[in-house]
Design a protein around this nucleic acid. Structure first.
Length: 282
DNA sequence: ACCCTCACCTGCACGC
DNA sequence: TGCGTGCAGGTGAGGG
């Protein structure tokens, strides 16, 4: 589910909730979550580790662990995919239905990974190898870094015959957008989602660049204004609940906030694209 | 090298 | 009420 802003928010919440805690035991209940590592090996490696940092790269969550006995530093790399969630529960709380991993902390609490659709993945890697980890090594520059420039975006666009909407979902080209914010970024830029990337006129590239950064920034600050509380799992959801960031997504047939024209939706490749046919003419 | 389709899962909203 | 269909915030394998 989460796109970059939601992952960023999960990272900040994890820092508040579990930074400096030690994992006294780990229990994996869904083997494929940590495959090809066995559940036993995974638990053994993680047990007795202290959480020394929480960060992210794109949509990957990086939980840095210091092994107290061997002084070895490793990183728990987590991808939430569509429905993965972290929660912090007390020992008394019932586990939610899809709790696939439970980390017992040294303060009588449990960090729980819950994932209804079971797409999420977890991997332990040596700290020095995080950037070479499959999935991470090919990622595009962080959208707020100095490397994500208009020129970079222009080059990427020029090399592709795919539509803008499809290209924006490719994390190796543009990092951080998902199906919601790809539509939203294009709306903000006033650009039609079905334009072939290489055919976007040069003067529109900066607008797209701005649209991408603006929507991510707006979503991150919207999320931040309403804190994600890992301790009350029922108390939060991603997306619209966090602020009015969605201007076209899930608004088929409803009037465009800018011009009143009904928002349109098309599915291609099994994914919905939303746009305003007037504000985003070809 | 690129790009498309499908597969991975559960659950919900919808129409009949 | 039940059942079938389509859809859901993401990616990766496999094939053209």
């Amino acid at each position: 589910m989460p796109e970059l802003p939601e992952v960023e928010h999960v990272v900040r919440s994890l820092r508040r909730a579990v930074l400096s805690r030690t994992i006294v035991a780990a229990e994996v209940r869904l083997p494929k979550l940590v495959a090809p590592t066995s559940r036993a090996a995974f638990s053994r490696k993680i047990k007795g580790s202290r959480i020394t940092a929480v960060s992210r790269r794109g949509k990957f969550i990086l939980i840095e662990l210091q092994n107290l006995s061997s002084a070895k530093s490793q990183v728990l790399v987590v991808h939430l995919r569509m429905t993965g969630r972290f929660m912090v529960l007390s020992l008394d709380d019932d586990l939610p239905k899809h709790a696939h991993a439970v980390f017992y902390l040294d303060d009588e609490r449990r960090l729980v990974f819950n994932d209804q659709r079971q797409f999420g993945v977890m991997r332990l890697v040596a700290a020095s190898r995080v950037s070479q980890t499959k999935g991470i090594e090919q990622l595009a520059p962080e959208p707020f870094s100095d490397d994500f420039t208009n020129d970079y975006l222009k080059q990427i666009l020029n090399r592709s015959r795919r539509t803008l909407k499809t290209l924006l979902l490719d994390q190796t080209r543009v990092l951080g957008l998902g199906n919601i914010y790809a539509s939203e970024a294009l709306f903000r830029a006033g650009i039609n989602p079905f334009v072939v990337a290489a055919e976007l006129s040069s003067r529109r590239v900066p607008r797209l660049h701005q649209g991408i950064r603006d929507v991510l920034r707006a979503a991150i600050s919207g999320n931040s204004s309403r804190r994600l509380n890992l301790e009350s799992p029922e108390g939060f959801s991603y997306g619209e609940a966090f602020g009015k960031v969605w201007q076209v997504y899930d608004r088929e047939g409803k009037p465009c906030y800018r011009c009143g024209t009904p928002i349109r939706r098309l599915t291609h490749g099994g994914r919905s694209t939303y746009w305003c046919p007037r504000c985003q003419r070809k």
